[in-house]
Amino acid sequence: MTASRLQIDHVSCYNYSGVVHSSYNELRLTPLSTMWQQLLDLRVEVSPRAPIFTYIDYWGSQVHAFDIHAPHEALTVIARSLVESSGQRWEERELGWDAFARDDVKDPFAEFLEPTGCVPADERLSEIGSTLSSAASPSDAAAEAIKWVGESLTYRSGTTGVHTSAIEAWDGGSGVCQDFAHLSLALLRSMGIPARYCSGYVYPDGDNRLGERVAGESHAWVEYWVGDWIAMDPTAGRPVDAGHVLVARGRDYSDVVPLKGIFHGGPTSSMDVEVFLTRLS
């Protein structure tokens, strides 16, 4: 897809097993405005109703924060956004490996090189990384790394959870987009290539007509820096394009959690999330 105007409806519903007396929540559901992506409209509604406080966090994501103090048994969050995208672009630059060893290159990207809870360092992975990096230039090795992840994981939902690490998913051999992204980050960072986690949405492949509301999902992919930031979707095994809507970036999933909160009361009995995308042009 080369250019698009998409409407995204993101509906989340928590059903609690008892009465909740107070809950505190943060949403990271606002598509970013970038060089290639414009947020045209956004509406966030929560039920029970509550005043919403917004701020921009350290990573540049817009956060909606709210708390609810009326007794409630369910919480619904509806975020509707309208986004125009021309597709992420980047410049192909040929940097040698020596550049990635220089402090003045590494330091600005320090936090995209360090291991995290979901993206731990792993010796076996580092060996794969050094095999790839010894055979190719940084940009070719990075592309190979994305390819390797696609071959090492099978897409299967339900085998991993939100806290599964890249290595756990790799050992299990399967996962969802989040796991593909985490494993890509782990391999890229092991080679010394700065890499960050991206969350958002992707317009599903298929013969969809303009104006048709189609079911989608939250999605995750990666960006890595080889002279410029390159955005790749390891789950799909292809570059990011105008069908991708970028919401937030961070070191891993925990920096960009779409909905997080705590509440006083019984445990959540169920959580339903539905995403619908409508292509308007």
Partner: peptide, 17 residues
Amino acid sequence: PRSLVTSSEHFHRAAWG
């Protein structure tokens, strides 16, 4: 260096801004 701060366990990004 930026990494001095970003690698500190007491650097709380939630306090940024």
